[in-house]
């Protein structure tokens, strides 16, 4: 049995040059309040350094945020690809910010979930993260 007090470890990062980080500032606060261990990378990251950090830190989740434009369709898949290359595909990748509807199926296919936005209630996000980690990474119910 897994210890129920085990903490979810989550890397919170924005790839690329998008500067709109209100969302991740608040998200990180919420996740900490919910008892998770947050590795806060903030803005201006490359997919490489996000993946490196997640592996080094043995994180359960990478939470990616993007708002300004469409380039997340390059960065997000790249993160998934790098995890695969590094044999770390068991790290759950989730995304939020402004991910438009049309792009979601493609990202879902890559195993990215979440798609949280401005009006998503934070308990929904926390619940989603915890459930997915337990199911896919910790393999507990």
């Amino acid at each position: 049995m897994e210890n129920s007090s085990r903490k979810v470890k989550i890397v919170v990062a924005m790839p690329g040059l998008d500067c709109h980080d209100r969302g991740i500032i608040y998200l990180s606060h919420v996740l900490r309040e919910a008892g998770m261990e947050v590795v806060y990378l903030g803005r201006f990251n490359t997919p490489e350094n996000i993946v490196n950090t997640a592996i080094e830190e043995d994180a359960d989740v990478i939470a990616l945020s993007y708002l300004n434009d469409h380039l997340y369709m390059i960065f997000f898949p790249r993160v998934v690809e790098l995890l695969k290359e590094r044999g770390a595909s068991d790290i759950c990748v989730m995304a939020g910010g402004r991910i438009i509807e049309e792009d979601r199926p493609k990202l879902k296919e890559l195993g990215i979930t979440g798609f949280f936005g401005q009006s998503t209630p934070t308990p929904v996000m926390v619940d989603h993260i915890v459930k997915r980690v337990k199911r896919e990474r910790w393999k507990v119910n």
Partner: peptide
């Protein structure tokens, strides 16, 4: 645009996809 703010040129590797965008 984003890269003008960052003070980097459009042919900088990190600028890919950003020049003249927002």
């Amino acid at each position: 645009d984003t890269i003008t703010h960052q003070g980097i040129d459009p042919d900088h590797p990190l600028a890919e996809g950003y020049a003249g965008v927002s």
